[in-house]
Amino acid sequence: MSAAALDATGLSAGYGPFQALFDLTLHAPAGSRTAIVGANGAGKSTLLRAILGQVTVTGGDIAFDGRSLRGVRPHRRAKAGIALVPEGRHVFGDMSVADNLRVGAHLGRSGRWDLDAVLGAFPLLAELLDRPAGVLSGGQKQALAIGRALMANPRVLLLDEVSLGLAPIVVRDLYASVAEIAATGTTVVVVEQDLTQALGFADHVHCLLEGRIVLSGSPDELSLDEIRDAYFGVRVA
């Protein structure tokens, strides 16, 4: 399945009365690697949940492969080819690792990712297949969560804070796998607090502050200082 483009236009979204995103416009072309950086509470996770239809969108629109997602329920968006690796991993702890991966393949979308391919990308999971996912370590859970998302053969893969709480070496391995995934032609959007990781991975970076994009560009165009200023809310002229 080919990669697809993701476009948010004038997006406003939030939880009940609390608005987290304000008139946000973002374009992720098919096959691109996008990183969204920003401090805690900047609205990064809300943006990803809005793309999946799991928060209330109060204005603007999101288009997937050129088609509006307005009114499309979350499981239908997954069916269209959007996969999210949620913050906090959210593996199904009572189910075995193998069953977690099988649930990932619930839709039966065909493509290059199947059980063997996922175990090839994350060899550490191979020995754990019969374990309940709840007992895995943080890094193992993260690998499982990504593997589970891949099982759906998504056209767009969204990763939320995959490095959070993991050892640097584990993070490096994970990002190496994610880069391979991106190389297969999947559009990848990562939300990341670790600037070095984000800049090393992405071909396009957006900095989010209080629900708005305050800085965008390719990692070559942007200096680390510029991004830090945007990150902490020091206004760039």
Binding site: G14, G16, P17, F18, Q19, A20, F22, T56, E210, G211, R212
Partner: peptide, 16 residues
């Protein structure tokens, strides 16, 4: 869920 009407005062960018 319906949005509560904001209390008197302006809504800031952070939603507060």
């Amino acid at each position: 869920m319906t949005a509560a009407s904001p209390a008197a005062g302006a809504s800031t960018p952070g939603g507060l």
